[in-house]
Amino acid sequence: MVDTLGAAWLIARKDLAIEFKTRSAFLSAVVFALIALVIFYFSWDPTAVSATDLAPGVLWVIFTFSGLLGLHRSFGVEAADRAIDGLLTSPVSRESIFLGKALANLIFVGSIQIVAIPALVIFYNLPLGAAALPLIGIAVLAAIGLVAVGTLFSAMAVNTRLAELLLPMLALPFFVPIVIAASQSTAKLLSGRPVAEAAAWLKLLLAFDIIFLTVCTLAYPFTVED
């Protein structure tokens, strides 16, 4: 178990080192998230719908789409020169590879959130207040589910003829429960309701995370064997 997680951490560090040197995917994902925030603001009548009502949906839709940008890169970087073969022949379990990739993606998605959520709060003038801490909790739960499913589909999509075109088609239906649960619980918090009212949604997110992290970790070895 310790070995599995230790090896996963090494792989995550490798991916993050590549990303830190190039910053290509991160910058494009952050800029995409900021532009999308601005576009969404002008897509409705602010006198009819208040920003607080619109913000949760905007935030989590942007979260999934910008997440896709990072997820595609996750196994995309391994496709060049068949780097994935080197990874697979290294003395590391398949589960470690998956968890390492997922961890790197989690940090990637989390870093986008660290920029996007404050930007949303400022641009949409949100009354955050006591909702700040629970909102971080929602962000973490949503990111784990997104990354678990997205990492597995990224590994599959990169080996198909459609490559990056296939990833959204496979992954987005799986993101729907995450977007619904995260948006609804965020809406509760932003309208000043106690966390207890969002508890059912948070449980749903937690159940999604546990089930899909387990299933996807177990399923990954089947996608890479020869």
Binding site: V149, L152, M156, N159, T160, R161, L162, L166, L170, P173, F174, V176, P177, I180, A181, L204, A207, F208, I211, F212, V215, C216, A219, F222, T223, E225
Partner: peptide, 29 residues
């Protein structure tokens, strides 16, 4: 989108199983 029969079979099996796990979540949410 997958040419290799063995890879295609494994990929679609994984998706076929994951889909069955997703439906209760969609229904619930």
């Amino acid at each position: 989108a997958v040419d290799d029969p063995s890879l295609r079979a494994r990929y679609s099996a994984v998706l076929g199983i994951l889909g069955a796990f997703l439906i209760p979540f969609i229904h619930m949410s």
